[in-house]
């Protein structure tokens, strides 16, 4: 806790994340209106509608509150998949070395060489629209960085005497990996996971902005898409397009600050 207090960047990141998680959990209580309920269109911000209404008369403030859920869920769930896939491959490559390492490294290099955005777009075009398709499309291209960084660290750890001692004691490989290697990756895992969440949130926002996001579910990227699609910039409706941009930036910054702290500690 003292360490945490001394690292203001990490603390700020955690406060931001906690704020958005709280908003996502309490969306039903905090939201003044049903975000899909129709009303008078294009209202300016007022006491009744804090951020005005959109082209369908839906309350933008309520949309923003519910949008936290989708954006956070997508970011966190994608990061979990990315971290799981990346760390599993890294453990296998780093621990066994040899042919397994060469195959996984080659696979990672190939995946890194493929431009991620076109591949994600292609996948979304083929997959059924929805949150899980989006998670899959984001995750399938995002595991490479995590795998590459963790693999180097696993290799380093496996050269340490305590791992060699576990092997000579006769400890089984899964026990070595999960009891002795994985816990020593926790700092770097936390960092990668935080960065993966921010990366996934950015990708989701980008895809939703392009109209390839989650239809029927409000996300910040989705709100932004409709704001631009309905010419909110030309109409000067700052209250419509600016809040999602600010929220995306602040949330991504929150996760990056947590990631930054982990990186700093590792260095």
């Amino acid at each position: 806790m003292t360490k945490l207090k001394s690292n203001k960047a990490m603390l700020a990141g955690l406060v931001i994340i906690a704020f958005f998680v709280l908003v996502a959990c309490l969306a039903d209580l905090l939201s003044p209106y049903d975000p899909s309920a129709l009303g008078v269109a294009y209202q300016k911000p007022s006491a009744e509608h804090l951020l005005g209404t959109n082209d369908l008369g839906q309350d933008i403030f309520s949309e923003m509150i519910y949008g936290v859920r989708v954006s956070l869920f997508l970011g966190i769930f994608s990061a979990l998949i990315v971290t799981f896939v990346g760390s599993t491959l890294a453990l296998i490559a780093g621990y066994y070395g040899g042919a397994a390492d060469r195959i996984i490294c080659a696979l990672t290099d190939i995946a890194m060489a493929v431009p991620s955005l076109p591949l994600t777009l292609l996948l979304i075009a083929y997959l059924k629209s929805g949150v899980f398709s989006l998670v899959l499309a984001i995750s399938i291209t995002a595991w490479t960085g995590t795998a590459r960084i963790l693999r180097s660290r696993v290799r380093q750890i496996c050269q340490l005497p305590y791992i060699k001692i576990e092997k000579t004691l006769g400890v089984k490989t899964p026990v070595i990996l999960f009891r002795h290697v994985l816990p020593n990756l926790k700092d770097i895992l936390l960092t990668r996971m935080a960065l993966s969440v921010s990366g996934a949130m950015m990708t989701e926002s980008g895809l939703s902005f392009l109209g390839l996001g989650t239809y029927g579910q409000k996300s910040w990227g989705n709100i932004l898409h409709f704001a631009f699609f309905r010419n909110s910039i030309l109409r000067g409706q700052v209250w419509w397009y600016l809040p999602p941009i600010i929220c995306i930036c602040v949330a991504v910054m929150g996760f990056m600050l947590v990631g930054y702290y982990g990186q700093q500690k590792k260095d």
Binding site: Y162, K164, T168
Partner: peptide, 12 residues
């Protein structure tokens, strides 16, 4: 069995 040179990294 084996005993290594560096005791500080001989334990998890």
């Amino acid at each position: 069995q084996i005993l290594f040179q560096h005791p500080e990294v001989s334990f998890n």
